[in-house]
Amino acid sequence: MSKTTSTSYPWYYHVLGGLLRGLAHLPLSVLYGLADFIYFLLAYVVRYRQKVILTNLRNSFPEKPAAEIQRLQNQFYRNFAQVLVETLKLGAISNEELKRRVTFRNPEVLERHFAQGRTVLGLSSHAGNWEWVLTSGALWLSAHVDGVYKPLMNPFFERFMRQLRTGTGAGLIPMRDTLRDLVQRRGETRVVSLLSDQAAGPEDRPYWTTFMHQDAGFYTSAERLATRFSCPVVYVGIHRLHRGRYEIVLADLYDGDSPLPANSFPITEAFVRQLEADIRAFPADYLWSHRRWKHKRVTE
Rank of each mutant, 00 (worst) to 15 (best):
G244S: 05
N154Q: 08
E63N: 11
P10T: 00
P202C: 09
R49K: 14
A216N: 07
L134F: 02
E158K: 07
L84H: 02
W293I: 03
T87C: 06
N95L: 05
N95V: 04
G201K: 13
G22W: 13
Y32M: 09
E96K: 12
G201W: 04
V233W: 01
S125K: 06
L172Q: 08
P10N: 03
F157R: 02
Y44Q: 10
P261R: 11
D146L: 12
M1R: 14
G22K: 09
S94W: 12
I267T: 01
T168F: 15
A226P: 00
N129V: 01
F271D: 00
I279T: 12
D285G: 07
R78I: 09
V120S: 00
D285S: 13
S258I: 00
V145S: 05
N129K: 03
T135H: 01
E158S: 08
R185F: 02
P259C: 02
G128P: 08
A43P: 05
F114V: 12
N129H: 07
Y149V: 10
V145Q: 14
H14W: 15
L23I: 03
L241H: 09
R228I: 01
R101T: 13
R165W: 00
F271G: 01
V234F: 11
E111M: 07
P155C: 09
S29A: 09
N79C: 06
P202H: 14
P266W: 08
D252N: 13
R228F: 01
Q70Y: 08
R49Y: 10
D204A: 14
L121A: 02
R180P: 02
Y48Q: 08
F265L: 00
P266K: 06
V133F: 13
